[in-house]
Design a protein around this nucleic acid. Structure first.
Lengths: 234, 234
DNA sequence: CGGTACGTTGAGTCATATCAACCATAGTGG
DNA sequence: CCACTATGGTTGATATGACTCAACGTACCG
């Protein structure tokens, strides 16, 4: 399912939020000796909850879905990783099995950095260590907000909010359609509700001319109103 | 409301999960020059959402409540900090205003470590940097689990689970009563429900001989069954 | 052409929120 | 010392958002 591929390792210096963006060419050269790069096709599972990870992943292109499987096999999507982001580091650093699963949502080119290489880098390069700490803190802040939202907002509010958050993270095409394609079930698994509820609410939003629907394509018609319904500040 | 007090700074090496537990006496001596120590009384607010923090806190004794205020002023408790833990670091490291508020739940002795002192320590001491990274990853893992729970479990399940988690974190007295005292409202603000629901479910648990209630004191009578109801693994 | 995954709609049910009234306790100030 | 107020706790009645179950439509794929 995966296929080795050559990508210039210094790519990982160029993405806006990469934790590697301050590395020197020398650092990159060292890193690239032991890291590898693969093309992963949509649908591939990278690891499952409970697996021990032997390294961390860096997203060069594509989108990865990170999720937990709860009671009765229902998934809860924790986050999506886009180019420039790393994942798997939580498990590697706390030396625990993965507490989430990772699946390829769009064909992705990933760098894989083995544990000992990452740890070595963290020990010798305070900048990378601090960058990773910041990434982890940012994620923590988002997780805390999400806990509050899911605990206090209605499903309708959460759906509107998620539409706005997805727009902010992945952006819109020229014609205002969301750049990431999700099934109704995946949307439900983000906001923690039933698939049917998502379907009903999406049609409501369409009725109210907030969005337009065409299969999985969601076109944004009234962003301010969606923002208002979702109680999104920021 | 707060009062300066002298505590031996090397205390912060002795607590089990302290990020400072590997510091040398020299490191501690340096640290203690610029950190200060105060006794904070129950009810004191340490900071509010949106505040800029000028440093991080280390809990020597006592309990701190970390929470977010959502729509219509309802609080969502994110976590409690007990001796050995640090808080406020998320805001300091990502250089953003605090995304939570912090309030003293039980009289607490706190060390306050100014931002520049912490950053300096992180830059010069890879062990502390890694410890903090691990702490942050642990918190992240807990936050992810909590998102899944709150999204998928019923209020009844969540209440049972929280009772188990509180027991695991704070322990029980000789007579099996929980060592931390919370109002019904605080319990509701952890699991994200209405105060009345907590009251009703606690009485149900009491009826079923799972717990006994005496004011805010909760006595654990049947831990295995609570664990089962709460779907707590681990 | 049958199979599989996804999407949609309707009907019925139930857990939980909301609203309202009331009690207990403790602290405050005249 | 008593009235006053605030805070927390409890219980009941009522309303409803969201879930579940079930049936069916649609589209793509080998």
């Amino acid at each position: 399912m995966k296929q080795e591929i050559y990508i210039n390792p210094s790519d990982c210096r160029h993405q806006e939020y990469s934790i590697f963006r301050h590395l020197s060419q020398d650092d990159i050269d060292n890193l690239s000796i032991e890291m590898n790069c693969n093309l992963h096709k949509k649908g591939e599972t990278l690891y499952n909850e409970g697996n021990k990870l032997s390294g961390v992943y860096y997203v060069n292109t594509g989108i990865i879905k990170i999720f937990k499987t709860g009671i009765e096999g229902r998934d809860q999507i924790i986050r999506f990783c886009k180019p420039g982001e790393v994942f798997g580091y939580r498990s590697v650093l706390s030396e625990e099995p993965a507490c989430t699963s990772a699946k390829v949502l769009e064909d992705s080119i990933l760098f894989f950095i083995p544990t000992h290489v990452l740890l070595n880098l963290l020990n010798t390069n305070a900048v990378v260590a601090k960058e990773l700490l910041i990434v982890s803190c940012k994620e923590l802040g988002e997780a805390n907000s999400f806990i509050t939202d899911i605990a206090q907002k209605s499903v309708r509010e959460r759906l509107a909010e998620v539409l706005i958050l997805l727009k902010n993270k992945f952006g819109l095409e020229e014609d205002n359609t969301l750049k990431i394609n999700l099934t109704r079930e995946e949307l439900a698994n983000i906001i923690g509700t039933a698939t049917e509820s998502v379907i009903r609410l999406l049609s409501e939003f369409k009725q109210d001319n907030l969005i337009d629907l065409n299969g999985r394509k969601i076109k944004y018609l009234n962003i301010p109103e969606l923002t208002r319904i979702g109680n999104v500040y920021s």
